[in-house]
Amino acid sequence: MKKILTAIVCALIAVCCGTKIYFVNSEGIKQEEKNYKLNEEVKFENNFFNSKGDSSDGYSVTVLGSEIVDREQFKKDHDINEDIGIELIDYFCLVKVRFANVSNKNGSRSGISIMHFILQNEDYITFPNKIVYPLVNKSDNLNFSLEEDSSAEIVIPFAVLNDDITAEDFKDGSPQLVISLYPTKKAIAIR
């Protein structure tokens, strides 16, 4: 009898805990997630990374492709002979994107901020590299605006270290370019 009572009490406690956990989780802050394919035009809308001020509403982005280049090859391609501070980087993931101003009328008051973008490959994340950005784009402007109905093609270089993820593992994964976090996290496949 005692054992049956104990079992009933334990089951009741488990049910109560489960119900409470369910209700607490249903009330939590929700972050919607949307995933897009390569070559798909994605509008930023009212989504942002840190604050509403950095929103690129009215703009759109299309990922055109990506390539992985190891450091030595990258140095060869861009005629880099001296130490520019990239010696610790093992390889670069160069993501080619097209930004377009579809309906933004704010002029230079809003636009695109390259440093906000994140390259995510499952549990791995990395950010754009400031040092090599001017080399692959022939411009060092990390924040820019576009005129309405105009577009620009940019290469965003992401630095990757073998200690974090090897080039093989990176290729095996499903890397995505994260273009916003809140209220909707938008991520585009880079291949």
């Binding site: 009330e27 549990d123 791995y124 200690d163 994260v178």
Partner: peptide, 26 residues
Amino acid sequence: FVSTLMFIPAMKPDSVYDIYFDVLTG
């Protein structure tokens, strides 16, 4: 763990917030 789950929502971890979880690649 269970009592924390009863009061604080368990948002599914996302690596873009890895510094808050302190769980990094590698």
